[in-house]
Amino acid sequence: MTLIGPLVLAAFLFCVGLYGVMARRNAVLVLISVELMLNAVNINLVAFQNLVWTGDADATGQVFALFVIVVAAAEVGVGLAIVFNMFRNRASINIDDADLMRW
């Protein structure tokens, strides 16, 4: 099995996620897209872990993937809370409505 397969898949997922982040108006969809990007990273981590596998108790890549999953879960929690807050305050979760910082 070649290495580039998973890597290209990861790159594709990352770019799709990136597209979602930039193109979607709905904040929840933006969060979903961010999840895609994080998962792309996880694929990379696990794939490279597999490449350098020595047979010993060396699971660094997978450990990092787990950490990323945890961080992603936390991110979703906080992100959704922020989205709810925004919805409560503005009755809208459109990203481009949140432009208080514009000129």
Partner: peptide
């Protein structure tokens, strides 16, 4: 130049990328 500061985070992200 102020129009660059649109407040649209997605445009910022795009520009950064």
């Amino acid at each position: 130049l102020k129009h660059l500061q649109s407040g649209d985070v997605q445009r910022y992200a795009g520009a950064m990328l």
